[in-house]
């Protein structure tokens, strides 16, 4: 068992087999730096719970692929990424920090899927981006790559 501590001082016990999916922690364990609690100053407990849920489910990923559990795992993944943008980005940050490749892939792909075919307005709305470009700058961007702004905007819905 490996103990992880979130930035709001909550401790979690995770099986070593699960936690070594994180390259960072794997390296720490190999270097013998994981004898006591591993503090994770960049991750809050809410996100860490999510990440641990993923790690525990994917503990047997390699074998699952061979045994027909793959569908089950796929379903789990689909459910797992079914979260708000803010949470998704938190998990991405955590996965990036802990260096969990598969989780990173999963979440980035989910983020990308949500951005697919979206209109500029919809993306701004979804990600809460404030447009700080002047009209001249916007025009300049369009002139640089006119082809990208051609054609009808496909999806204007926000979700």
């Amino acid at each position: 068992m490996v103990k992880l501590k979130s930035n709001d001082d909550k401790e979690f016990e995770v099986e070593e087999a699960a936690v070594i999916q994180s390259e960072m922690i794997k390296n720490m364990i190999e270097d013998g730096c994981a004898t006591s609690v591993i503090p994770l100053p960049n991750i809050d407990s809410k996100t860490l719970i999510k990440v641990i849920e993923y790690l525990n489910k994917h503990i047997n990923m390699g074998k699952a692929a061979e045994t027909g559990e793959e569908d089950d795992l796929k379903e789990f993944d689909e459910q797992f990424v079914n979260m708000g943008w803010e949470e998704l980005f938190d998990v991405i940050m955590a996965a990036n920090y802990l260096n969990i490749h598969e989780l990173m892939e999963l979440c980035c792909q989910s983020a990308a899927d949500r951005l697919k075919n979206k209109s500029v307005r919809a993306v701004r709305e979804m990600l809460k981006i404030t447009n700080d470009l002047t009209e001249e700058e916007e025009q300049e961007i369009i002139n640089d790559a006119p082809w990208a702004f051609e054609g009808p905007e496909i999806d204007d819905t926000v979700n």
Binding site: I92, N96, C108, Q109, L115, K116, V123, A148
Partner: peptide, 26 residues
Amino acid sequence: QLPDDVLSSILARIEIKDAVKTSILC
């Protein structure tokens, strides 16, 4: 909060046209 390289790798997964379109977001 996301670093640039993470955002770029997300963009790399969508159609190149959509990716270039994000340049006008902000």
